[in-house]
Computed example of a mutant assay.
Amino acid sequence: MTGAAAVAGVVLAAGSGRRLGGRVKALLEHEGRPLVELTSGALRAAGCAPVLVVLGAGADEIQERASLGACRIVRNPDWASGMGSSLRAGLAALDALAEPPAGALVALVDQPWVGVEAMARVRAAFRSPASLAAAGYGGRRGHPVLLGADHFAGVAAAARGDRGARDYLRAHQDRLTLVECGDVAVPDDIDQPADLRRLSGPPSDR
């Protein structure tokens, strides 16, 4: 199987933005568009199909206000338990597709400066369902993360709380390809009220 095989995109966008005073991160705007639109669009532009968006808090409002027509929506009723449940929901939805993909590129909705270039680089690391890769920033692992389908069950079993795939990736670091993206992306999260002003400016304003 080659890098041209089907690799889906998964956007984790279920959080409530509790530390942002309850402002749902998916609907925060950057460059005039909701973050969930930017992230899902970047995954599509990077060659991922289909693109799944995992929603939880504010799901109805997000579907009303964001343009996600080309995406498959996955609702995570257990979103309050942490990101791990959203990752499990996304991977389960991929496995349930009539034609499950050979891999998935997983991105976070609250990293607006991780765009198409970084996603395409990590997507290009796909070789087979055994592939495992992640973006690197100065040698430190970050997002997006590429999971070959052989890893879906193991990642889902290890994803608990807010840890996502972290424990699984650490346990399999000898098989992990780190794809340096620090020259094209900034892996900063939007987590605190002070971070909101950065959305109106370029990454250099972070």
Rank of each mutant, 00 (worst) to 15 (best):
M1S: 13
M1V: 14
M1R: 13
M1G: 14
T2D: 15
A4S: 15
A5I: 03
A8N: 11
A8I: 08
G9A: 03
S16R: 09
G17M: 06
R19F: 04
R23G: 04
V24K: 00
K25A: 13
L27F: 08
L27D: 04
H30Y: 09
E31H: 05
R33V: 15
R33H: 10
T39Q: 13
R44L: 04
V51P: 09
V53C: 03
V54H: 06
G56W: 00
A59K: 15
A59L: 09
D60H: 13
D60F: 03
A66S: 10
G69P: 07
C71L: 05
V74L: 07
A80I: 08
A80F: 02
S81F: 03
G82L: 05
G82I: 02
M83P: 01
G84W: 13
L87D: 02
G90S: 13
L91P: 07
L94W: 11
L97Q: 07
P100L: 00
P101F: 10
P101L: 01
A102N: 08
A102L: 15
L105S: 03
V106G: 06
V106P: 04
L108I: 08
V109R: 00
V109H: 06
P112V: 12
P112F: 14
G115S: 02
A120Q: 12
V122A: 03
V122T: 10
F126W: 06
L132S: 00
R141F: 01
G142S: 09
H143S: 11
V145S: 01
L147H: 03
A153C: 10
V155K: 00
V155M: 04
V155S: 02
A156L: 04
A158M: 05
R160M: 10
G164H: 07
R166T: 14
R166Q: 12
D167S: 14
L169Y: 08
A171N: 09
A171I: 06
Q173T: 10
L176T: 06
L176F: 05
G182T: 10
V186G: 02
V186S: 14
P187Y: 00
D188S: 11
P193N: 12
G201Q: 10
S204Q: 15
S204M: 11
S204H: 06
R206H: 15
